[in-house]
Design a protein around this nucleic acid. Structure first.
Lengths: 338, 338
DNA sequence: ACTGGCACTCAGCCAGTGAGAGTGCCAGCA
DNA sequence: TGCTGGCACTCTCACTGGCTGAGTGCCAGT
């Protein structure tokens, strides 16, 4: 169905369209990509590619542009992984080195990603699965309300309010002591297991309080890290000023919804690998005109956080995938080394 | 120089231009604002207003639009404070009530402000001067590195890494105990004073450690709260798709720079009052085409945090000022009540 | 001091035109 | 059979010129 030449032509169309941002015609194609055939031949092939749904014409007398399906084929089979330039590698290092804490690390990561891809970057806070719990704090704020605070060995602090009912100060202190004694030094998975064990050992008086606190603690240990998302590179949307209503606005709106972003990253990113969602493939309606390149990073397969970029479907997939992968690896290594 | 009628005309021009977004001519003016004089008279007055620099013509045969100076006069002397509509009051209440912690409160505030003003909203984290210190935690992460964590009675958690040199675990624990004993229950100002006192009482062995920790603690108690800024309503910029390069992009870029935003809010907002910076009045170059409406909120005069909105100079000042003031008051009251 | 009238300016809109890019198809050639 | 050159056709885009309408400034009159 699609012989080598047709695939070559599709690759050339994608490449050219991405770099020129203009529909590409048969003549330009043979000139710029040394195809060794005449434009007429290319035209015949293009007609087939169009019939198969890989490319399309915006209007009768224009060149062709790739469809989502075309990009998909390109990404899956045609896009040679483009190694990062020396400048880009250096940029990653110089931007990201010297982070003072997790907040700073995430901020730097999102900046770096935005800069080298020239897209909007999204970074989820890391799940620090290899970090261990360093301290558990339970602070009573007012009668009935307390704040649960977890400090991990990596310097990350998680907090969540807890409704503690009628528990008294002394009980709070008691539970705090027990939690610290039991959990400090453990990783998230071990901590959750140990917590289950601890629950069975508690005196009855602490039971109600523990029932209020423990679910939240568990949650913080697993998902909650992933609950925060940071966005950067929004000014890059500037380049699409023309398609404001159709493309930019929906993206801006999505970017304000943490929940949407989390879901988005979660759906796209797979274990360790860089994955891509192209246009219509996105389940979130307003982002149907954009592509998402994402990857998990840090931690064990089941406990990874995600990062990625959002941009127009006509993006430079090989470069962006390389960049996302490189940054994901860099931050993973950074986290692993502590 | 500027008699009553000229001021009335200026007010009408500003009002009309803001609501119609189009240069306003003499005929439209007399028709829509019952001026009781002929267009020719209005023209004469407009010529004077233009000469004085309050209004200008985008091109020869267009109507007039206000200049920054014109808006300034309007804001200072002509803009009747427009009370919020019932719907807006209700919106503030329903959006902001039920915040579970400070993060949530700030998030809700920024959302509220963006919704009722239809501008980009900026909210600085509150300086909780009436909140008291609830707990001090000093957690050692690795040899030489620790994390200082402050929990306030309002549920706010502040953290900062500390370089603790060669201090040992036991010393860290010792200092932690002393800090808690001394500072818990105090407000930020009292805490700082008490801290100075504490420093003189410490045994010599704890001195180096205390010297590393205390400055950071002090800093967290005063400025650091103000260090974080949250932005919302970015999609509202959508309305200015036409002036993308000149107006929108600079704003987007500014919004990514926390430092810029802090400085901006700090410069504009004055003690308790709503203040306005119009166009050229802004010291930050890229925002010279926008106006900022801001107000301090919460806390004592010296320790206020700020919030505000950023929008085009052609904004509805009375409404936005009313909205900013209302939201600032609401969050202030909320914080005061705890 | 205000007004009506008048000449003037200029942005925005419309229709018409021409150039250029690109296509599909076809007949011919290896 | 597969490739190629040629050709007629389509359609966008950019440019043009003319027209319209909004708005002005000025001036003479009340």
């Amino acid at each position: 169905m699609l012989d080598d030449r047709k695939l070559t032509i599709l690759r050339a169309i994608v490449t050219d369209y991405v770099s020129m941002q203009e529909p590409v015609g048969s003549r330009a194609l043979v000139e710029r990509y040394a195809l060794d055939v005449s434009p007429a031949t290319v035209r015949n092939d293009m007609a087939v590619l169009e019939e198969e749904g890989y490319i399309t014409q915006p209007h009768t007398s224009a060149g062709r542009i790739p469809t989502d399906k075309g990009y998909r084929l390109f990404v899956d089979r045609l896009g040679a992984v483009k190694p990062l330039s020396v400048a880009e590698r250096r940029a990653i290092q110089s931007f990201m080195d010297g982070a003072i804490d997790v907040d700073d690390l995430v901020a730097r990561t999102v900046r770096t990603l935005a800069r080298i891809t020239h897209q909007v970057a999204i970074v989820q806070y890391p799940v620090l699965s290899n970090a261990t719990l360093r301290h558990v704090e339970l602070v009573q704020l007012s009668p009935g309300r307390a704040l649960l605070i977890l400090v991990s060995s990596s310097g990350q602090v998680d907090q969540h309010p807890v409704d503690i009912g009628t528990a008294e100060e002394s009980q709070v202190a008691d539970l705090r002591g027990r939690l610290n004694a039991a959990l400090v030094g453990l990783g998230p998975i071990a901590a959750c297991e140990r917590l289950d064990l601890l629950l069975t050992e508690l005196p009855a008086t602490l039971k109600p309080l523990a029932d209020a606190v423990c679910p939240i603690l568990k949650q913080l240990q697993t998902e909650s890290h992933s609950t925060r998302v940071v966005v950067g590179g929004v000014p890059n949307l500037t380049r699409f000023a023309d398609q404001y209503e159709t493309a930019v606005r929906p993206v801006l709106e999505a970017l304000e919804e943490q929940v949407v972003l989390l879901k988005l990253l979660g759906e796209v990113a797979g274990a360790g690998e860089v994955r891509v969602r192209i246009g219509q493939e996105n389940s979130y309606e307003p982002l149907r005109t954009t592509s998402v390149v994402a990857s998990g990073y840090g931690g064990l397969p089941g406990l990874q956080a995600n990062l990625g970029v959002v941009g127009p479907t006509r993006m430079d997939y090989p470069s962006n995938m390389a960049a996302v992968r490189a940054v994901a690896r860099y931050i993973s290594r950074y986290l692993a080394e502590g």
